[in-house]
């Protein structure tokens, strides 16, 4: 029982911090399942301005921007991870 509780605690803590290998490219692998090279309803992310991606993810995480899917995804991202993702996607631009 005690072990179970610790298991949950550890899992909740780990995603909030950046592990050694937890770089932006690795994190971004989760995004590209839906965000492709083109898209009518799901925007491509490559080349988007860093400030826009940061603002969008922060707003999703705070529940201030509507979209239930993106809200639950953003809820699992730390400030550092949001910053790293935003910089990464801007860097993929032309």
């Amino acid at each position: 029982m005690r072990r179970g509780i610790w298991g949950v605690a550890v899992c909740l803590l780990i995603p909030a911090g950046m592990g050694l290998a937890d770089d932006a490219a690795t994190l971004a692998q989760q995004c590209v399942t839906c965000h492709g090279a083109e898209g009518e309803a799901i925007p491509p992310l490559a080349g988007l301005p860093e400030a826009d991606v940061t603002a969008a993810l922060l707003a999703y995480r705070a529940g201030e921007r509507p979209d239930a899917l993106m809200q639950v995804v953003a809820k699992r991202l730390s400030d550092d991870e949001i910053a790293a993702l935003a910089a990464y996607f801007e860097g993929l631009g032309p």
Binding site: V32, T33, C34, H35, G36, A37, E38, G39, E40, A41, I42, L92
Partner: peptide, 21 residues
Amino acid sequence: WLESVDWYRAISADIFGSSSS
């Protein structure tokens, strides 16, 4: 619905490597 179509295209490229990264 449009989202699901975008997802299909994106995940197909992600699985099979056509066109996207």
